[in-house]
Amino acid sequence: MQEIIDGITQAFQLIISLNPELLEVTALSLFISLSATAISTLISIPFGGLIHFREFTGKRVLITIIQTLYSVPTVIIGLLVFLLISRSGPMGFFGLLFTPTGMIIGQTILILPIMTGLVITALSGVDRNIRDTLISLGATEFQSIAQIVREARFAILGAVILGFGRAISEVGVAMMIGGNIRGETRVLTTSIALETGMGNFGLSIALGIVLLAIALVVVLTMNLITSGALSDSDKILGGPQA
């Protein structure tokens, strides 16, 4: 019991004193996961759109595969990417193993299925009638797709936030691809695993609190945007859905 109390006390000291190691690990975590989310967003919206708007054989099968990959274990993605980018692998010559770039690649692959799947769901949620209306108003295919994506913006935003949540909280890819190298590839989750193993509960708890705080900020932002309480986001995003 005393250990826990000591740990929490130490955690708050570390946070309040802006411990440099804590800041560095947090910054790297945010950088890697935000990058992965950004890249995945840029891929999943057009990719999801393509799947939703085009009719082709095997469409249902493809969607089922994507949905299955929602629950792919992070260590499997870690293994896959490891085999690809390790020195003897097909992409070994890039030297990406144990680098933040390698971790970004791994996390992007990890969250791509869930984001693509949720983008498809978001687009399916837009009434078929809207598409007919847009075409009837003289829209080209591109103009109508752009408007439908815009119409699904809140659901797509949800997909982005969920993708980010999965990226920042995962440990498998970060550990296997990053290698948890201090000052280079050490992120919040790998750091917690390591420090706990070494008995540094204070630092572990502090890192845990920071991770949850990031999650809280993400959730609050999402709620603010979707409830329309934030008038600026209202202007940028077009306001609340209901």
């Binding site: 809207i130 003289g138 080209t140 815009r150 859905q241």
Partner: peptide
Amino acid sequence: RSIRRRMAMVFQKPGVLN
């Protein structure tokens, strides 16, 4: 499309965008 742009249709469900 160029012919369609000389017409307009109002659907049974109004289909307004958000």
